[in-house]
């Protein structure tokens, strides 16, 4: 094996665990948006820090893959660095910061600005896979609601937001309907990213380690953000241009520059930003 860390299998997980996860992944692709329970293992990183995404990536990854890891859209945030280094140690795979060059992209909280192409796989780290958990914390009960496609609770919640605040209050992790059947959490991506899930050419896989669920959106699959006819879904971004590349389309991080109210806005997707000429 070309694993750089001796004493562990390629990709860290043992083969039986990978098979179990792979079986869950295949079923997840066959039932778009449905959460498949799986026997998540303890990983050498804490639950809540990407163990689900890591287990999915470790089960999918092969020696020819090129891996990109982002957190908050950036390749060089601490957790992204840590996870990339983990796979470099346990699988010895090539890594990249370029969205276009990657075959597998593990992400937390963002979808890259550069559209995915066919054959690329986007692996999301998911903290709470159950879109209904704030409305129905009992798992046995939410499982039953999914079985019956009974999503009235969520419609009522969104409608109450509108009644109270004039608009839907969720700005990230805004629930989506997948293939007209399953209500799904897109993970805590900003609502700005939601439309990118719809009819995406790439395969989107979701891993929740602590909650032990895997789900998927196949390529070219209908993904609609929940909304109402009179209150259509609106993706939101800060109304500014990136201070580095000038982009007026990308999602921006707000950076505080002093204690006098000074602000600047920069692309959250560092690869996208770096690929554009500076202003």
């Amino acid at each position: 094996m070309n694993a750089a860390l001796t004493g562990y299998n390629f990709g860290y997980l043992d083969e039986a665990t990978k098979r179990m996860i792979r079986r869950a992944l295949l079923k997840a692709v066959c039932i778009p948006g449905h959460q498949v329970p799986f026997g998540a293992r303890e990983m050498p990183l804490p639950y809540g820090w990407g163990t689900g995404g890591i287990q999915v990536t470790a089960s999918v990854l092969g020696p020819d893959d090129v891996l990109k890891v982002i957190d908050q859209g950036a390749d060089d945030t601490t957790n992204a660095v840590s996870i990339r280094r983990f796979f470099n140690r346990v699988a010895g795979v090539a890594t990249t910061e370029s969205t276009a060059e990657a075959t597998i992209i593990q992400t937390r909280h963002r979808i890259p600005e550069t559209p995915l192409s066919e054959g690329q796989i986007l692996v999301y780290q998911v903290p709470m896979p159950e879109p209904l958990f704030r409305l129905e914390p009992r798992v046995a009960e939410s499982t039953r609601l999914h079985a019956m496609a009974e999503y009235g609770l969520m419609q009522v919640k969104l409608y109450e937001d509108i009644a109270r605040q004039g608009e839907v209050a969720t700005s990230y992790n805004h629930p989506v309907m997948v293939n007209h059947r399953y209500l799904m959490s897109p993970s805590p991506i900003p609502a700005f990213d939601n439309p990118k899930m719809h009819m995406n050419a790439g395969l989107q896989l979701f891993g929740a380690g602590r909650e032990k669920r895997i789900y998927a959106v196949p390529p070219y699959t209908d993904v609609r953000s929940l909304d109402f006819e009179d209150h259509p879904f609106k993706p939101v971004r800060a109304p500014h241009a990136c201070a580095i590349c000038g982009s007026e389309e990308s999602y921006l991080d707000e950076v505080i520059t002093d204690d006098q109210g000074g602000r600047m806005h920069v692309c959250s997707d560092t690869d996208y930003c770096a690929s554009r000429p500076p202003v």
Binding site: W49, D71, Q72, H109, P188, P190, D253
Partner: peptide, 9 residues
Amino acid sequence: LPHYVDFQS
């Protein structure tokens, strides 16, 4: 962990 993106939204 960083939550800049969600917080921004």
